[in-house]
Design a protein around this nucleic acid. Structure first.
Lengths: 205, 205
DNA sequence: GTCTATAGTTCGATAGAC
DNA sequence: GTCTATCGAACTATAGAC
């Protein structure tokens, strides 16, 4: 299955085309720098040095393009994510550092905003996001169960929700130009995660 | 100062016009329901039952309209916010409940997304957001200092950043259709805030 | 595989009548 | 205070030449 559903018999570029990859790269960059609303076939074409028609040749509609951006990112990260948690000695801190990546966070924020008024993007994004959380939860639960660390009644999944929410939140406020409380809060969270990681490490020895 | 800078000598409606208020209401509703990208003079006019030209008559440009939406909301909330914290027996829980308001959170999220590519919106929003945080911080610091509660090294401002970030985060994930971990995490945060509130109350008696 | 040309929309904003 | 009429620009998407 290379494209959505039983589409019209229209010509469409191959998955491996270099141009296709470049168009995805350019689209990601526009979304990160100027927001999803700045994405148009003309803008993409201009930035990529091709003509607007090529965008439609490769992706059909803009919805399909957004879905392709989402799918590529998500597939890239999913397997890596699973390994990250189960192989790192400090999985929580590692997860936090990965979540803090400015580009990734910005792109995710834009996709979430986009999902607000593109039904197909919403359902795809929700599916991926749930999948991510479950993969992370499984790996983390395994890790913490083995170490027998005490969370004082806090569900393991809440640590993941906290990491996801606060990395997005801090990044958003920072890119807005806010300052009050950001650095302190980042430090508090990192200390918390480090403490948990260390406690888990200690119980394992 | 009723409008931005030394604008052209163009006619413009009064601040108190009923139509103007209705246009602001309709614009807020569109942003909350369908996102800022759905806002256009034609859409506003249609929903408000007037003609598109009226939007420009009252607000000039769309930027001015967005700024008016922001200003009205912010001014409404600012004084109320200050009173909320210093008058409630459980200020943190109260702040959390207010922050959870779906409409307010959605509108703020849209304004933040909008700020991503409208310079003037960004700087105004950042100014207001910083002002909010400082007002909250001042009131909260006073409250907590009087009660002498122990935060175990967590800065007071971080509680505010947490409330802001997680209320937005939980709401975003919920509106996306996600489920895993949301209810548990909301409960954890509310327990934490309630505990702090109770501790502060107890030290005051 | 990539291009030109273009149809068909929708938009912001303004001028000027009422 | 509200309307009609309209200009000029940007956009999505397609058909068909090369």
């Amino acid at each position: 299955m290379k494209e959505s559903g039983m589409a019209k018999p229209r010509r469409m570029g191959t998955e491996t085309s270099e141009t296709r990859v470049r168009l995805l790269d350019v689209t990601e960059r526009i979304m990160i720098d100027d927001g999803y609303a700045a994405v148009s076939s003309r803008r993409i074409a201009k930035d990529a040095g091709v003509t607007p028609a090529l965008v439609h040749y490769y992706f059909g509609t803009l919805d399909d393009l957004f879905l392709a951006v989402l799918k590529r990112r998500a597939d890239q990260q999913l397997e890596r994510q699973r390994r990250t948690i189960s192989s790192s000695p400090r999985p929580l801190r590692r997860l936090w550092d990965v979540s803090k990546d400015p580009d990734g966070t910005a792109l995710l924020s834009e996709l979430m905003a986009l999902a607000n008024h593109r039904k197909i993007v919403r359902s795809e994004l929700a599916t991926y996001a749930e999948q991510f959380r479950k993969v992370q939860l499984e790996a983390l639960q395994e890790h913490l169960a083995a170490s027998g660390v005490d969370l004082h009644g806090v569900p393991v999944v809440s640590i993941l929700v906290l990491i996801a929410g606060m990395s997005r939140g801090l990044m958003l406020e920072h890119s807005l130009g806010m300052e009050t409380g950001l650095a302190e809060t980042e430090a508090v969270i990192e200390r918390l995660l480090d403490d948990l990681d260390r406690a888990a490490e200690a119980s394992l020895t």
